[in-house]
Amino acid sequence: MLKFAANLSLLFTEQPVPQRFAAAAAAGFAAVEIQFPYDYPADALAAAARAAGTPVILINVPAGDLMQGGAGLAGHPQRVAEFAAALPLALAYAQALGVGMVNVLPGRLAAGVGRRQALATLAANLARAADYFRPHGIRVLCEPINDLDMPGFLLRTADELAALLADDNSCDVGMQIDLYHMARMQQDIPQLLRRHLPAIAHIQFADAPGRGEPGSGALPLAQYFALLTELGYTGWCAAEYRPTARTQDTLQWLPPLT
């Protein structure tokens, strides 16, 4: 049976972040993830997670100005020092929260930077991050994101990410795949899962179009979950959608799967 986690950055936003852990547990989620937890003290989040009994499985490494429309850090040749400086902060939060995976967002192609140079920078930063977190038992992931929602994004598909990672066999970086983003890129998701599952360390999902809860769009998410079970996927599936109503009122899909 698949394991489902709640993304607390998008779900249960009716409450402050520290209270979302208990809400996720009450709804039936076995774990949670947070995109960028850095606005809250790590010890306060850790206490909330312990009290709710919901382990935190993943956070993102700080991404600079990415979420405000900028290029971010990981693929920017002039921001290598900023990326390196973000790693200790991510490690401090990961250790406080007991996180086993951290995600590096590739970012957008920066103005005046060639794609080849940006990809080389990203590859070097991923290798640096993997080396940094490995001694602490934390695995680094990387995620492609569709360039309709985030124009100029550096890696847009699982194939593009796989090609980047294949260039450095010594770099143990896992793939984080969001089914919503792949659907927006018109990818054949069953084929994608069959091809890349050995390298996929984490899966996120939302329906498409709209990025709402399962059943709000056109994606056959139940079929994808069945395929993941058939293929023997043992990682987490994280609900990272924008609820079309109160979060608690959009969870009809969850009980049949848990």
Rank of each mutant, 00 (worst) to 15 (best):
L197C: 05
E213T: 15
L165Y: 04
A199D: 09
D167A: 15
I189H: 12
M185G: 01
Y180F: 15
M175V: 03
L192W: 13
P209N: 11
A199P: 00
I203K: 12
A163R: 13
A166L: 11
R194V: 03
Q187H: 05
H202Q: 15
A201I: 01
A201M: 09
E160G: 07
Q191C: 10
I203A: 11
M175Q: 14
H181P: 04
D168R: 13
R184E: 08
I200C: 04
A206E: 02
I203W: 09
H196A: 02
V173A: 14
A201Y: 05
Q186W: 00
I200N: 00
A163Y: 04
L165C: 07
I177H: 04
E160M: 09
Q186N: 09
R194D: 11
D207G: 11
I177L: 14
L193C: 08
P198R: 02
A166K: 13
P190N: 08
I189A: 01
V173N: 10
P190M: 05
A206F: 13
M175S: 04
L164Q: 02
R211K: 15
L164G: 03
E213R: 11
Q186H: 14
I200E: 09
L164C: 05
A166E: 12
M175H: 11
P209I: 04
N169K: 07
I200A: 06
Q176P: 02
L165E: 04
Y180M: 09
H196K: 01
R194S: 10
G210T: 08
L179C: 06
P198M: 01
R195C: 04
M175W: 02
D172G: 05
